[in-house]
Each structure stands twice: as C-alpha cells, then as structure tokens.
Amino acid sequence: MVQSFPRRSFLGGSAALAALPAGAQAPAVPLSARPLSESRGLVYVLNSRDATVSVLDAVTGAERAKVPTLREPHHLVYTPDRREIVLGDSAGNEFQFLEPATGAVTRRLRISNPYHLLYSPDRTMLAVASLRRDQIDIYDAASFELRHRLAVPDMPSHIAWTPDSRVAFFTLQGNNSLAAVEAATGRLLWKARTGKTPAGIVFDARHGLLVANMGEDNVTVQAPEDGRILRTVRTGAGAHNVFPSPDGLFHYVSNRVANTITALDAPSLAAVRTLRAPGAPDCLDFSADGRQIWFTQRVANRVGVIDIETGALTANIPVGRSPHGILFHALA
C-alpha cells in the first residue's frame, strides 16, 4: 500500500500524485494510546483551501498521501460502480477521479464549477450544484454530457434524489428555500420555504426530506411532493448537514455553531444524543464497522474521530486548511 504512493519533491517533482510515504506528514493526535480504528481503511479528506486531498490511514491516523487538486475541492462521492472516487473542484472547474484503494489519480474532467455532486440511485444521472454561478446541472452519468441546466436563485448548495431517480432536490442556501427538479426534463417542479440557510439534505423514505438549516438550530422535515414543512426537529445551532448511519438506525446532524453532532433516532426523529464535535463540524462519514464517526473540523484544519459507543472524541488529526468533504473507504 505505502509503496504505491510515489514521492513528491519540494517543488512538486515528477510525481503525478504528489504523495508522501506513511508518517511523513504531521502525525495523528490520538487522545488515547489505542489504535484509532479496528476497521482497515483509507479516509479521504478534501482540504478546500489547500487544494489537496489528505489520505489518512484509518487505523493509525497517519497521513498516507497528500494528493494535489487544482484549486478548491469541496465534495466527493463514489462513482456508481465504486471503482473510483470523484471529487468536485469548484474553483478549478474540474472533476478529479481517484482510485479508492490507493488515492492514485485516474482521470480528470473539465466541468464548470462543481460544488456538490450526487449520482442518481439508478446510476444514470449526476446532479451538480454550482454555488458560485447560481445554477444546477444534470449530467449523463456515463458520458458527462450536460442534459439540463437550470438557473436558480442564490447559492444552490446540497442535493438529494428520490429513490426512483425521478426528482432531484437542491437546497438554496441564500434563498432559504428548496427546489425540486424533474430529472428527465430539467423542469422546476416546485420551490418551497425551508428554515434559514438550508444546507445538507437527505431523502428518508419514512419521513420525507430532512433539511439541515444552518441559520437555525433544526432540521425541517419536508414533503417530497410539494416541499411543505411537516415538522421541525431541534438539533443544535448551525445545523449543517445530515448523514444516515450505515445501519439505518440514526441520522447524524453536524451543528456548525454549537460544535456538536446530534443523533436522531431514524424511526421517530427524536434527538437521542448530542456528541461533542469541536472545530465547526462539517461533513462526516462512518468507519467500515460503523463504530466511529470521522468528521471534518472546518475551521480547525483537523479531522475528529468519535467513538459512537462512548461518545468520546478519540482523535484529532491535523490535515490541510478548511477540510470539507470526507469519505471512509474500507479496505479488505
């Protein structure tokens, strides 16, 4: 594994990946002497202000590689076949594809300002929210040909799909609203009010759309048919994003201002637990065994690790500036 990362000279050298050997960067700061994780894996962290990806060893927390991007990477997802990770570099106007097991760059694609991106469940389409040009795009997932582009008011931020891939939902951060777009036609189906500064959004078949309202302390539950608010669930100040746990039992909400992560019981949406998460928590992912939360501490230039069972913050790992998107890739 380690040998697969080429070295990088001071000026960049000839290595395409600009990677470093294990342990060459600032070490993890585990808060206990035990290994960080029982799950083998690589954790990909997008350092948006450094234009790099930190690739962390999930067991030791050591930085295994630092992969350069062009300008400003924010979000990342697996490609539908899970053979690649694709990250959106918004200011660099580029998708960069990585091999999940090594972090090697497999290809790049020019694309206008991709901020958030999400494949449709049927794997045929890719939705892109462009925060800096007030447009949302739907691409063909295989060819990346633009199918539809729609101008929307003020800061399209995060995306969710219906399970049937018929409708894509976009939070409009600067407009306190949510837009539903018919994927086949690119037609705006409806626009509905949310709380203040909506950011993260997920589709939950039991409840509807869960929208984290960063300008408030809550998640609104909204009807997929017309966007009406069905109920409001209090989490913590600056509710930023929502992440379903791998076992489907909880939704975890990062609260940017409160510096906490709230666990919502998925069937009832009751707030059952509040975890301390310093450093303005942003995106998070779960270890392969589901026992840890790895989250980016946006202003502290670190990644935090929380043991879900105890709720303790078990590590605080230095990464690059303004870490945003994060993905835990399990290794066999």
Binding site: D154, M155, M214, G215, A237
Partner: peptide, 12 residues
C-alpha cells in the same frame, strides 16, 4: 464571527 453571523441570520 460565527455567533455574530448566526445571530444576524447571515450564515450563508
């Protein structure tokens, strides 16, 4: 800064 933005409704 963050509490100020939050209080003023300027989190965007």
């Amino acid at each position: 800064l963050l509490p100020l933005l939050y209080g003023a409704g300027w989190m965007h």
